[in-house]
Nucleic acid binder design. Structure first.
Lengths: 210, 210, 210, 210
DNA sequence: GATGAATGAGTTTTCATTCAT
DNA sequence: AATGAATGAAAACTCATTCAT
């Protein structure tokens, strides 16, 4: 018989994770000290350690939660979209408007840092790889759908295209996140969309005329 | 009247920088401790501080040196190339064969980390921005050349295209550097080249029909 | 909702300051290392840094506390004294018996070192000057009182006399603190009292006449 | 058969000591690093260690040299003075005009610091005491002369008076050296002279009468 | 469950001294 | 004799984690 309800605990957990995201995003994972999270969350150091075993676990949980939420979101949005092309376009739209959600903006920085951090810790590599594959698979599925429906060129390797898609996204986000020039980012993202889709889609009625 | 020659000192400096690169690349900048560099270089802690004022300065000098070398290299290679298209292709070739030079591979990781690190230190932002602009300008110049010669579509904004070029490069390198799958990287890079050049070049006798 | 009472913290603070005084007095400020204070106080290094931001802050707080206590003490003692002459005599008495309080003895050494230290740190000069002026003003007030009541020669400049008073005190303390010959110190101090008071007081019924 | 003349070596030694005085005076003994002396003297670190075994030895030699010079000076000046009163007045005059010689000003700071430093090093205490006694004896001799000639009160203890003389001097110098207010210092010193001499001299035809 | 004081290993940097040239 | 590069033992300070209350 727990003293507090499960919801209470869940809420507190999330509260900590939100503060952690803010701090990690602003100062970086290594530079963030637990006291930063204490200050931002107004939750005591001891309490934080009641919910998470270590700073690293906070990091890991944070990334997992964000990733899960991203896929939930996508699932929901895509449910109503019928073609691969629409789904891809929706994804591009997502990052075009993303700068409005400061939240996601922060997440990106933290993701990229995690990329660095995780690639150096043997024990995190599998987590990193799993997360990466989840993203890859997500696009692979769309590409395959598109190839079946004839929207997307059959000669392309879905795995390869998916990897390129994420490389494009991450490269652009990398620049944007750290240089912060929103207008340029948006223009670049538009151009990238055009370039990517025209490369990937079948010529018939190619380009943009939705 | 120094006791050792300027070359000796230069060599030692480079020796330290090489060890630093190795350490920074393996463990990350923050996680690398001076003793790691001491151990790797076999140079005493005090001696290292005779050559560099701080760990951060080692980092900065390292990046500067690498960047300078990159541009020197490029300058030299491009001197013999007559068209914008050839220059771009040469750049793609460069990163395609890059994995052979382990050295450059390391530098990339460190560059990306610097991106994160620098974007959070007010005093480093200008260095970061200057470095970024140097890279941007380099491609802008090539694009403009190509537009004048008719190789490259005139309606494209050179700045924007340059940014996209580097986003492609960085995104791909980001994935490769941390996932380390060489074969996939090379294939992706080939595809990216095709995508990019076909987007950028004028259709007449368009880029790749090997 | 602190886990410990304010008194507990105050006590701990004082405990650290006392150890610091002991160490600074024995070895000097610069030569004292934090581990000396750790050893003497039996408080961990980290805990010390929970109470004070730096070694220098310990020094500053220590001096401030001692100075405050000195003036509190004086205020109390002087409350019952009605004439300027009595107040001056009381001050002389204070340092005559001072050697009995080992505590004050230590403080003096540390004060003098602070004089040296502070005079070389731009940012400490104002603290030093403020402290000095507080001492000067204290005697100035007494001198003026005495001049009004007729006890003290009207032609003397209170500021100048006050400065001389403290020069006498500091000079004597300097010698005593470092040579440690108590008997000689006490005799010198008696002589100084006689010299000073006979110079300062109006002849009529002057306290000391040879 | 030495390679260089004794004079050359002596000159170099003095050069180092002069630089050391400057540095010690400006930054303090502990805060001065050998490289400060190297920079100021333009003599290499190795060479400095050829002339002195350690930083401490430089300090000690410096103090010794300065003390010796002081007494040589005094001897010379006093040779032409016939009475104890004149000799004392001459001493007062010396410190009154001293601020003009920046050199001596520096020495004072260093002396005071040495007082602190020396009193904490068992092995330096005897050096300190010897130096102190040399100063004490110097005044004792003058006082005794004055007592014999009738200039100075016979009932005074020469040792005690000598100690007080130096306490006055050191106290005043302490304040001046670190607060640096020249005008105030000079006025105080005048007043101290008046106070001291009127206390010490026989009333008949006393030097200073207000 | 919550609190925040305490811990101490770990980190960067300094600097007196040495010694090969 | 002179040089200055090299050494490495300190020293101040940090911060993830623990644990008594």
């Amino acid at each position: 018989m727990p003293k507090v309800s499960a919801e209470y605990k869940e809420e507190k957990r999330n509260h900590i994770l939100e503060s952690a995201l803010k701090c990690f995003s602003e100062k970086g994972y290594q530079a963030t000290i637990i006291d930063d999270i204490v200050k931002d969350s107004n939750i005591s150091k001891g309490a934080i350690y009641n919910y998470f075993a270590s700073k690293e676990e906070i990091y890991l949980q944070l990334l997992k939660k964000r990733t899960d939420e991203f896929f939930e979101d996508m699932e929901q949005e895509n449910a109503s979209l019928t073609s691969a092309g629409k789904k891809l376009e929706n994804l591009f739209k997502r990052w075009k408007k993303q700068e409005l959600k400061e939240d996601d903006q922060q997440t990106m920085r933290v993701y990229i840092e995690f990329w660095l951090y995780g690639s150096r810790q043997e024990d995190l590599k599998s987590i990193l790889a799993a997360r990466y594959n989840r993203f890859i698979d997500y696009i692979v599925k769309i590409i395959k759908e598109g190839q079946e429906s004839g929207e997307i060129k059959k000669e392309l390797d879905p795995q390869n295209i998916s990897r390129i898609f994420w490389a494009l996204r991450d490269g652009n986000v990398l620049h944007y996140s750290f240089l912060g020039e929103e207008e340029q980012y948006r223009i670049a993202w538009d151009t990238i969309e055009e370039m990517f889709l025209s490369y990937v889609k079948n010529e018939i009625k190619s380009g943009h005329q939705d």
